[in-house]
Each structure stands twice: as C-alpha cells, then as structure tokens.
Amino acid sequence: MKPFVYERATDVSSAVAAVAGRPDASFLAGGSNLVDLMKMEVVKPELLVDIRHLISHTIEELPGGGLRIGAGVSNNELAADRRVRRRYPMVSQAVLAGASFQLRNLATVGGNFLQRTRCPYFRDVSMPCNKREPGTACSALEGHQRDMAILGASESCVAMHPSDMGVAMAALDAVIRTVGPDGERTIPVNELYRSPADGPERDTVLKHGELITAVDLPDVPVAATSRYRKVRDRASYAFALVSVAAALRVRGGAVREVRIALGGVAHKPWRARTAERHLIGRPATEANFRAAAEAELAAAEPLKGNAFKVPLARNTIVSMLRTLAEEA
C-alpha cells in the first residue's frame, strides 16, 4: 500500500472539496473494495477522506411513495429494512446474494455501486489492463474469459461489473443523488456507467470528488412481487456468472408490466429493455419469455470462453419469468 494521509472529514462539503482538490485523493466509506485494491496497489490514493460517519445511514420515505436510501446504509441494513423487503424484495434478495454477512456489514450502498470489476487481469498489476493502465492492452480478450462480459463490451475492455444490488436497482430505475464540486445532481442508475468503448479506465460518469449521498427507489408497485436469481459456481459467497432481477404483472393472461435486469453479463447492471418491450401486451407464455430473452441476447457478443453465458442468461430469464408468472 502506498503511504497515504488519512483525514476524517467534518462535513460533506469540505470532504468533497478535499477530494476534488487532489487527483490522488479518494473517499473512504466501508473500505471493503478500496482497501482490497489498495493492498495490491491497483489503486494508490495518497489522501483518504473518511466520510463513513458523514453520509446518511438512514432509509426515509419519499413523498411520491418511494424510498431514499442513505449512501452510508450498510448492505445488510438495506436488505433487512422492512419496507425494502416488502416493497422491493428483489433488492433484499440481490444484496443478500452478494458477498458474505460480515462483508455486507462493512460495505455501504454507495460503495456497492462503485465497486470495481473482478477481472483477474485488472487485479494483477503485473498484467496489461486498459482499465487499470490505459493504453496497455486488454489481457482478458485473449485470456481467461469465463467471467467476462457478453453485452456492451469493447475491444479495449471485456470486464464485467460484479454488483448484485445494482442489478435490482437498475430494474427499478433507481436514481443516484450526488454532491460534487459543482453542486448536487441526480443520475439514474442506468446512466451511471460509461461504455468501455469510451475509455474503460473510468467506470462511471461521476466526476472526481463527486460523492454519492443517497439513492432513490421510486414507487414501483410491481416490485412487490419481484425476485432476484443469482447463478454462480458456489452456492454462496461467489460472484454471479449470470443473475436476473425481475418483476412481472400479468392480467388476463397477458404481460401488463415487466422489469428485467441482468448481472454478470456486462460492464454495468444490464437493463433488458429489449426483452421488456418484447413482452408488454403479449401472452405470458414460455414461448414468449424465451423469445424475449433471445431478443435481448441477440446483441450478445460472447468470447469463446464465456459463450455459455448466452444460453445461461436466456434460461435464467425464462426460468425467472415462469416463476413470477406462476406466483402472480
């Protein structure tokens, strides 16, 4: 770990100013990903501004019926919240499917969005990696491909985003609230992540020094019957090969409302809008579920080593929609 100065910020604006003012500065919240990467010198901040105690640890009702989740809420607190469990079960399930209980006590909601890829070449500083060192190469492209992205990837980077929580948030059209050097703003989760084609070294549209303060979950009634399904090698404590967050409302045998997002397949939580469009108004049948999944995955450009993810994602989407239709 490179030596660094540790500062406990006293208020949000001075924390933002401190980080924004130095390119080698970084916010510290839960630390579960940052400290991990610092040990391997994948990231080397020289100033850490601790904001864990400053950012909100509460979950509040929004006037429109949604919830505002403080960025400092731990992953476990989010999953255990009664309102979240009832109104957005896919969020609870997604969070609980990630990492381990003790890691989820450390990890914050804000940090979960910003966790870096698990690509082994990104995590090994002796390997070329465009995300870590722009202009070197993408080692995964011709290397170990099993965990890599099948959607939205680029020649310059095929890494995938490891979040489970983010997948459910993408399905719900959650909105991130930030405060940065230019003031406050909101960013839909589905617009948070940048395409790797635009330079994989920057994961998100956040500016340096911009801090996530909360995430707003809009009122989505159909989410009350939503689910999250994670397919992975180990039964627990493993990253997703493919995951699906979905909600479904069927009336008169036809799909009235549907939300689908995929994890483990792209550089970001992947909102499956093509599949959703394909389903709206159509009969909730196995054949239509399959056709919708295939329509979404038509854009997939798998590598040799992760081609299985295409049929796996298809089957998992179909399986999920079947379950939701049966429950509806």
């Binding site: 698990r118 090698d233 627990s236 404590y237 493993a238």
Partner: peptide, 10 residues
C-alpha cells in the same frame, strides 16, 4: 474468490 473451495452452503 477466484479459486473456489467448498463453502458451508455447498
């Protein structure tokens, strides 16, 4: 995280 050994749930 990359080399999996059985966890309790397995």
């Amino acid at each position: 995280a990359g080399y999996h050994v059985a966890a309790n749930a397995d």
